[in-house]
Structure formats: C-alpha cells, structure tokens
Amino acid sequence: MSLQEAENAIIEEFSMYEEWLDKYEYLIELGKSLKDFPESSKTDEKLIKGCQSRVWLDYKIEGGKIIFNADSDAIITKGIISLLIGLYSGRTPQEILSSDFSVVEKIGLKENLSPTRANGLVSMIAKIREIAYGIEGLD
C-alpha cells in the first residue's frame, strides 16, 4: 500500500467512529498493542518532551527504509504514535517527506496537537520529518 493509500485507509477507519469516546477506545487499543520500548532505551536523547506525556522515538535504517520505534507513558498518545508508526515506518525518506502529515488533523485529532495539550506529538511529527530529511540528505 502506498503511503497515500495507507493514510486514506486510516481516515476512513476513523470516520466510522462518531463519538469521541469511541475514537479514544480505538486509540487505547492501538496503544496497548504497540510494543513497549525496553526501559534501557528510554534515554534522554530519544525523549521528546511533551507537555504532560513523554514520548520516546528511536529509528534504524534497513535497505534504504526507516524503521521507527516509539513509546509513550500515556496510552492515548501511544495510540496516536502507533498510528503514525504504522504509516511511516518501513518507508523511504522520500515517501515520508512527500506526506503533508495532515492525516492527524483529518481524523479529528487536531485538538490533540494543540500546543497546550500534547506538543509531544507535534514534536514527534517534526522529529519524523527531521530524521527523514537528514537521511535523504545523506543520499
């Protein structure tokens, strides 16, 4: 599935939930299913300090693709992270940079990205782009 297709699939998935609590329920399940970071990897370099929740982001490069790994101490944030990882992990830097990352907004989580709420997420998206940009620059 192309990145665009994957983004559209998620937008469609979310449009099925009308109630906010159902969206959260879904994100909580996603968050719970995302593998925990090993405690030893929760280092300060990998920490993206948010307002309330903490987010850790790690990556490696395999065959020209970036494999992301992330964790958070808050489960809803972790669910959103899981969504982002599902979308952007295993893609080339070029693919990632071609996205406008509007998917989070389109699934109605924009308020979760507002500065007072979870700027950890804003920083995480910025970090994903930054990593992709840095690696693309190496080519």
Partner: peptide, 21 residues
Amino acid sequence: GVHHEDLALILDKMGIAVRSG
C-alpha cells in the same frame, strides 16, 4: 497504572474540565 493525561482527555470529552500535569 493510568496516566493523568489520558484521564484528563477522556473526562474532557465527557464534559468535565479537570487539571492534569
């Protein structure tokens, strides 16, 4: 076992304004 931010987000959607952090 529960993060305060998660509770605050859910309570908010139930109409309840609380503080967390």
